[in-house]
């Protein structure tokens, strides 16, 4: 019974007007949640947590860098799940959502790289180090850009989305391979690297802001994803009848 209702709900999501409405209702809540969690997280990260005795205040970059890195990867997993659903059930709204996830994930990847670089400068003395994680993040950024570029290169948007969905799944196989090979490569070439990011024992008092920020960016990812999907949907359905009601509502 419950399963049946879930199934009906799932199919309704495939209908553009329902999906559009859902995005419109859900997105403000997600953004509000993001603002609230960020407020708590930033307050704790900047005022409550004491400076680290080794890294001084520079470790506070962690509260941006690590959530961004997590979200860059989690974003890919979400995108891959959406891509699989889109390819198997051929649901257009899900295809659109998959494609909307790429730019948001790419933004987090870029943010992770930029903050990693800003952290590396005071700690390592260089803006860039061929550290295993930074290198695989850089490759991840190119994967995201490839997906976005492929989607954008098609004149037929729907076909572009479906082809790019295949690329998303290919990337899912590829990313662990890249991660493993790059790790192997850095251990070969550098002997032992100084491990700055994560892993080194973290004081329990440093953890709460990290969790708040991680939740915040998850909510934000959802909000941005829905906003973008909604735009894409309206853009593609310009000539459809249901769009008229939408403009009527919002004009």
């Amino acid at each position: 019974m419950i399963f049946h209702r879930l199934k009906v709900g799932f199919h309704r999501l495939g209908s553009p007007p329902t999906f559009h409405k859902l995005c419109r209702i859900l997105s403000p809540w997600l953004w509000a949640g993001f603002v609230a969690c960020t407020a708590i997280g930033l307050y704790q990260a900047l005022y409550v947590v004491p400076p680290d005795y080794q890294q001084g205040d520079s470790f506070r970059i962690l509260y941006i860098h690590v959530p961004a890195a997590w979200q860059a990867m989690a974003g890919y997993v979400i995108m891959a799940i959406l891509a699989a659903i889109a390819l198997v059930w051929r649901i257009r709204t899900v295809e659109i959502m998959t494609m909307a996830a790429a730019p948001v994930g790419a933004a987090f990847t870029a943010l992770c790289l930029a903050t990693g670089s800003l952290w590396g400068k005071p700690m390592w003395g260089t803006w860039w180090a061929w550290d295993a994680r930074l290198t695989s993040m850089l490759v991840l950024l190119f994967i995201y850009l490839g997906i976005m570029g492929l989607y954008a290169a098609f004149e037929d948007r729907r076909k572009g989305a479906r082809v790019a969905c295949i690329l998303v799944l290919v990337g899912l196989v590829n990313i662990p391979l890249i991660h493993f090979s790059v790790e192997w490569w850095t251990t070969l070439h550098q002997g032992s690297t100084i491990n700055l990011f994560g892993e080194s024992k973290m004081h329990p008092s440093m953890l709460p802001p990290l969790i708040w920020m991680a939740i915040a960016v998850k909510l934000m990812f959802g909000g941005a994803l829905l906003d973008r999907s909604r735009n894409d949907l309206v853009d593609q359905d310009r000539r459809k009848r249901w769009i008229r009601d939408v403009i009527g509502e919002e004009a």
Binding site: L42, L46, S58, R60, I61, A68, L111, T115, L118, W119
Partner: peptide, 14 residues
């Protein structure tokens, strides 16, 4: 060292 620049730039980018 003066870390403020790096920390605030990171938060600003965010």
């Amino acid at each position: 060292l003066d870390y403020a620049f790096y920390v605030w730039t990171s938060y600003g980018l965010f």
